[in-house]
Simulated assay, not measured.
Amino acid sequence: MNVLTIDIGGTFIKYATMSDDGIILSRGKVETPQNSRNDLIETLAGLYRQEEEKFNIDGMAISLPGIIDSENGYVVMGGALRYNDDFYLRHALYQRCPVRIVMENDAKCAVMAEATVGSLKDVRNGFALIFGTMVGGGFVKDRELYRGKHFSAGEVSYIITSRSVDPSIEGVWGNQCSTLSLCNRYARIKGRPVEEVDGIRFFQAVEDGDPDARSCLDKFAHEVAIQIFNIQNVLDPDRFAIGGGISAQPTLIDAIRTNLNRLYAYCPYHVAQAEVVTCKFQNDANLVGALQCYLADVKDGENVETFDTVREAVLPA
């Protein structure tokens, strides 16, 4: 079985044709359309035609931002791609791609990668935090991805941290504790344009002993530790996995653990302590997870629609 896996990001669409045992047969990336859902559909259809010419594509597995009703192939809210709001994306794709299609939120795909073949595969309940433009999250309960009634379980970005009665967009955790916010905070302290500071440059400054960079990292790690502490007490998972590009930095995980230990040391109550590890998968997490979502869907017998069964619903007479 060959599956075209697609990871739709705010800037680029990464794709890979993978066998069902995870072997990558081909891969590449293209720019993400910024203007309309029609442009997105045409881009995805083009990738399908391109890969179908080289391989026999049995299905498509799509990772994308937003709140996703994966059962019905419906984008409730498009996240970074707001033109996808309120859109039956899978039905539109069936017009161009007559194969089984599975789609899931990008952070939940990353969680599935960790839960099936990564750092959470040996635990019953696990939680993953994925740091990028905002903060993605997902909860694995009894070894299955838990989506919640409104498909938003694990959406930690929208946790309100401001005490204001009317919190601004800056008052949600995803805008306060993302990789972007970390780099921007450091850039402002240094008086540098924000576009000059990325994760690589920031952590190089940490390694070089820059006290401002170290202070920013400690503040960031403290904010992360607080939310891990809170989630641990609400859901009591066996383990937390930290993902996203910056998770490859050992100093980040060390700083989070240090701040967590400090919280537990000062907590006046006996509470369960969170275990924190690094995600196994980095840049390929969403592709690997999309494949795992597809395989789980096939195993469960869900999404039995095919191009023919939805033809009347999506094509004009």
Rank of each mutant, 00 (worst) to 15 (best):
Thr43Trp: 03
Leu44Trp: 10
Leu44Cys: 12
Arg49Gln: 14
Gln50Phe: 15
Glu51Val: 12
Glu52Trp: 04
Lys54Ser: 15
Asn56Ser: 14
Asn56Gln: 11
Met60His: 07
Met60Glu: 12
Ser63His: 12
Leu64Thr: 15
Gly66Leu: 05
Ile68Asn: 05
Asp69Glu: 11
Asp69Ser: 13
Ser70Pro: 00
Glu71Asn: 10
Asn72Tyr: 12
Gly73Val: 05
Gly73Asp: 09
Tyr74Gln: 04
Tyr74Val: 06
Val75Ser: 03
Val76Thr: 11
Val76Glu: 11
Met77Thr: 10
Gly78Val: 12
Gly79Arg: 01
Gly79Asn: 06
Gly79Trp: 01
Leu81Ser: 08
Tyr83Ser: 04
Tyr83Glu: 08
Asn84Lys: 00
Asn84Cys: 13
Asn84Val: 09
Asp85Arg: 02
Tyr88Ala: 10
Tyr88Lys: 00
His91Ser: 14
Ala92Tyr: 07
Ala92His: 13
Leu93Lys: 02
Tyr94Phe: 10
Cys97Lys: 01
Pro98Trp: 08
Pro98Ala: 14
Ile101Gln: 09
Val102Cys: 14
Glu104Tyr: 03
Glu104Met: 08
Glu104Arg: 00
Asp106Thr: 03
Asp106Ile: 01
Ala107Asn: 01
Cys109Phe: 09
Cys109Ser: 07
Cys109Glu: 06
Ala110Pro: 01
Met112Gln: 10
Thr116Cys: 05
Val117Asn: 11
Gly118Asp: 12
Gly118Leu: 11
Asp122Cys: 00
Asp122Asn: 14
Val123Lys: 01
Arg124Met: 13
Arg124Cys: 12
Asn125Trp: 03
Asn125Val: 04
Asn125Cys: 05
Ala128Val: 13
Ala128Gly: 07
Ala128Leu: 13
Ala128Asp: 07
Phe131Leu: 13
Gly132Ser: 14
Val135Met: 12
Gly136His: 11
Gly137Thr: 05
Gly138Thr: 09
Gly138Trp: 04
Val140Ser: 13
Leu145Met: 15
Arg147Phe: 09
Lys149Ala: 15
His150Trp: 14
Ser152Arg: 04
Ser152Leu: 03
Ala153Tyr: 04
Gly154Phe: 08
Gly154Arg: 03
Gly154Asp: 10
Val156Ala: 02
Tyr158Phe: 14
Ile159His: 01
Ile160Arg: 00
